Simulated scan of single mutants.
Amino acid sequence: MQYARLLGAARRGQVLTAAVVASSVVVMALGHRLSTATFDTLAWTAVLVLVTQALVDDRPRLWLVAGVVAGVGLNNKHAVVFLLFGVLVALALDPIHRPVLRTRWPWLAGLVAAVMWVPNLVWQAQHGWPVLDLSADIADEYGGVGGRVQLVVQAVLIFSPLMFLVWARGLGALLRDARWRAVRLPAYVFVVVLVVFLVTGGKAYYLAGAIVPLLAAGCTWVAERWPSHADELGFVLALSAVVAWPALVPVLPAATYAGSFYPSIDDDQPETIGWPTYAAQVRDVVRDLPDAAVVFTGNYGEGGAFEWYGVGAPVYSGHNGWRDWGPPPDGAAPVVVVGFDPDDADFTGCEQRTTLHNRYGLDNEEEGLPVWVCDGPAGSWSSVWARLVHYDA
């Protein structure tokens, strides 16, 4: 709403902005899942609003506030670097605000953010820069022509197709409308970061925080153009998102969701189904094993779920940050292996005990996975750990 105020939106335009953004698919999904992207979206939007406010009201000290917000955001997700780059390039491109680069305030803001980021960078250096390994895996998965087309298509859809029409109109108005020349910085930033993510192979939801101001601009334009119908238009826009909520948010019973077309829309929501059943199946396997048994999983989702629901044995995984809780003690054996083919990993004496199945017939990463019981690693845990750890998305 604050950016809508900067655009000169009256109460109707501000309320429309708040309702449309809050009901959008990506905001609902990220708010429910509480991932790093949740706070990343907030950080991007807040920085863009603060910087625009600093420029419009000539309040240079707001740059320092923006720097603090960016510093917090950098410690949550490194993608804020692209936002800061976008702001720098946008200022250089905008003849109205270009002179601010000759003042100390944007640079002090960047310095504040960088200083706050130092502990994170030190940790990265001490651990071999895992962010670069993970970024390379993401770029490999989402690179190429197909990945770039997917980024554009998903950017169109992540708020809702109808909301895309609104924020696209907002983008156009910001770039062309003389009234909004002083507040068009977020439009430039969006264009810059979109190009960067197309080149580097990013994901569409990285853009969510940069799209929010464009959506505010579009809602302001709608409220000005059709003031007597703004409420009805807001309802239609919200409804266009609500019909997609079940694809990303658990608003349907699991059985209803599993029998619908929604699982084919999103890869992540199906991964929230079936964990109590999967954990019970692993627990049944562990029950017959010695007390020194451990569970080793192929990804952190499996590791987290089995630890949360309890499977009767300590849970380890080499995936991403879960590696920091390993390796198991060298004497830990036997090992229940889930999410790995023991023939391709460093385990010996493996026997399949069961197969994971959820009770909804829903196809996700765990459905149909074999559960193995192995004598132990091929050597000590400490000696094979380097081959069991992996960074990937």
Rank of each mutant, 00 (worst) to 15 (best):
L157R: 10
P186I: 00
V192I: 13
S35N: 03
F197R: 06
R179Y: 03
V15I: 14
I96N: 07
V196Q: 08
L48N: 00
G303N: 05
S35Q: 13
Y262I: 12
Q14M: 06
P329W: 03
M163T: 05
V251M: 09
A114T: 04
P290H: 09
W381L: 00
D375Q: 11
V118H: 05
W372R: 00
V222S: 14
D284R: 02
L93G: 13
T272A: 05
L91C: 13
V47R: 12
L55E: 02
S382R: 15
Q14C: 07
Q2H: 08
D284K: 03
H32A: 11
T354G: 05
A43D: 07
Y205R: 12
L388R: 08
V338P: 06
G318C: 09
P213R: 08
W322E: 11
D57C: 06
V336G: 04
L88R: 13
N75Y: 14
R33L: 12
A4P: 12
A208W: 01
D58K: 04
P263M: 04
R323V: 06
L252G: 15
Q124T: 02
T354E: 03
G143M: 00
A345G: 05
E365C: 11
D341G: 02
F340G: 01
A293N: 04
A46N: 02
H357N: 15
F82I: 08
L108V: 15
I158L: 13
P246D: 03
V152H: 11
A29L: 12
P60A: 00
A182T: 02
N358R: 03
Y142E: 01
R225N: 01
G209C: 01
W226A: 12
W325A: 11
V21W: 09
H229N: 10
G143W: 02
F190R: 01
V15R: 11
L356A: 05
L162V: 11
T36D: 15
A204K: 03
V166C: 09
P328W: 01
R104T: 00
P99M: 04
F347V: 00
V27Q: 13
N358H: 03
A4E: 06
H127R: 13
A378C: 00
T354R: 08
D57W: 06
L48P: 11
V26D: 11
Y309F: 15
G73Y: 08
D177S: 12
A332Q: 00
M163N: 09
R181T: 07
Q281D: 03
L50D: 00
D363A: 13
V373N: 01
P263L: 05
T45H: 06
D231M: 10
